[in-house]
């Protein structure tokens, strides 16, 4: 490492450009189709509702987008004092 490198900091514009390219590629694709996360959220909610009664707020669905792969995070909280599973209650 030369002494000059100490003064060299990475410029921010290329980072901005790269982030925009990834983001916009995704946004353009999703513009054409309905919002995937809300569809998933609705369907997951319907599946759960068959067995346990939970409030909408107890289900969190989020998508973390990567360049080649995305992570879908589903967080379902079932309160303990919550009703007996519907299936058992019959």
């Amino acid at each position: 490492m030369s002494i000059l490198d100490l003064f060299k900091r990475r410029t921010s514009a290329p980072v901005a450009r790269e982030r925009l390219q990834v983001l916009l590629a995704y946004e353009r694709r999703s513009r054409a189709q309905p919002d995937l996360v809300s569809i998933l959220r609705e369907e997951i909610m319907a599946v759960i509702a068959k067995h346990v009664q939970i409030d909408q707020d107890y289900l969190q669905v989020s998508m973390d987008r990567g360049e080649t792969m995305s992570t879908l995070e589903i967080d379902i909280q079932i309160p303990n004092k919550s009703p007996v599973p519907l299936a058992m209650a019959g």
């Binding site: 410029t11 921010s12 514009a13 290329p14 901005a16 450009r17 925009l20 916009l24």
Partner: peptide, 16 residues
């Protein structure tokens, strides 16, 4: 600021 790489360049904006 563009010369210092602090701001998106014209090329960046147009390409995007």
């Amino acid at each position: 600021r563009a010369a210092r790489g602090e701001m998106l360049s014209i090329d960046d904006v147009l390409e995007i």
